[in-house]
Amino acid sequence: MTALHEAPPAVKRGQAPAGPPEQGRRLVRMVLAYAALVAAAVVVLLPFAWMVSSSLKRNNQVFSIPIQWIPEEFRWTNFVDIWTQIPLATYLGNSVYLSVVITFLQLLTGSFAAYGFSKVRFPGRDLLFLLYIATIAVPWQAYMVPQYIIMHQAGLTNTHLSIILLQAFSAFGVFLMRQYYMSIPDELCEAARIDGLSEYGIWWRIMLPLSKPALASLALLTFVNTWNDYMGPFIYLTSNELWTIQLGLRSFVGQYSADYAMIMTGAVLSVLPILVIFLFGQRYFIQGIATSGLKG
């Protein structure tokens, strides 16, 4: 009987119940918001859809007017022929190698440096961190030439090692991991120190397991940036067998500028690994950006 005489939650809180006009406005706002999101998604996905469609056409059908989104004849042979026209397997293998190695090194160096800047107390820690993060504001063009001179004098030009050494450390990665580590209670580290665990053990056994979302976010961002990097390999790699997929596709476009369908096929193949990785890792990426620290 008591439940029957209870007022609705909105009335109990001293709020007037939402009437039909208010509910109608909310519905309109929701519909407009979803319509805007759908429109934005269409604008973003439209070029990709055109690229995939063009990769399955003949050359004379790529720029047909009006645009034929669904080809009359699906030329799946384009995805076979391109492997014989350029050493695509070599380019993809080099890109995978560089992306995996650089991503691993940035996770290692970034997480370890972030632990020192967030959980280890030493004189000048905050000032050193600010100076290190300030390097993000320096454009790459400002130190591009000195870097090349150093690598040339060290005899590392035209090697993958030059790209790896230059990109193995990331100020942004340190910043991202430190912000995540700062949300983890210091009491965990203090308790581990009392139990006799070293700083390396605390980083390995406590901090890393608690920061999987942040590590996933950093890994995804680093892998995508390394995969799409063009200027770095263009400057340091001159041998064709060392080229990445971005250099290989640019060379292919220069040699076969009229083979539009094959160019689109190569572009699709270069995007597929990134698309697959993002689809499988987007949950961890969103979690790492939206959350921090321990969950209650």
Rank of each mutant, 00 (worst) to 15 (best):
N240K: 14
W227K: 03
L279A: 15
Q61A: 12
L218T: 04
P233A: 04
Q153K: 14
Q106F: 05
A49H: 05
G155A: 12
G110Y: 00
V224S: 06
A142W: 11
M1D: 10
P87K: 05
L4Y: 09
W204G: 03
A219S: 13
N94K: 05
I133V: 15
A114L: 07
L208C: 07
R193P: 01
M151E: 01
Y34C: 13
L210W: 03
Q179K: 07
G93M: 07
V11H: 08
I289W: 08
D195G: 11
L242N: 10
G155C: 11
E241L: 04
W69N: 04
L208K: 01
A191M: 10
Q147E: 11
A171F: 07
Q141R: 08
Q179R: 10
G281W: 07
N228I: 04
S118I: 02
L107A: 03
T2A: 14
Y115I: 04
M151Q: 02
M207P: 08
S99K: 00
R250N: 15
M51R: 00
L269P: 02
F79V: 02
T222R: 08
W76P: 00
D81W: 06
L237W: 05
R75H: 08
Y260C: 04
R13D: 14
P123E: 11
L156D: 07
W76E: 06
D195M: 07
L32Q: 12
F223G: 00
L45E: 10
Y230N: 12
G196V: 11
T238W: 13
L165I: 15
P20D: 14
A10Q: 15
I202K: 04
L156R: 05
A214C: 14
W83G: 01
R26C: 11
S292D: 06
A191K: 11
V44E: 12
L208A: 05
L237S: 03
A89P: 04
Q68T: 05
A16R: 15
V224L: 10
N225A: 13
F285L: 12
Y34P: 08
T2F: 11
I163G: 00
R58F: 00
L37D: 09
A16W: 09
V268G: 00
Y260M: 12
L237K: 01
V31W: 06
G173E: 01
D186N: 15
E6Y: 07
G266C: 09
A49M: 12
H160G: 10
I149Y: 06
Y91H: 06
D259Q: 10
L176W: 01
L221K: 01
T226G: 04
R58Q: 12
I202M: 06
T159L: 12
Q255D: 14
G110K: 01
F285R: 02
P139D: 04
F74D: 06
L107T: 00
V268Y: 00
A89R: 12
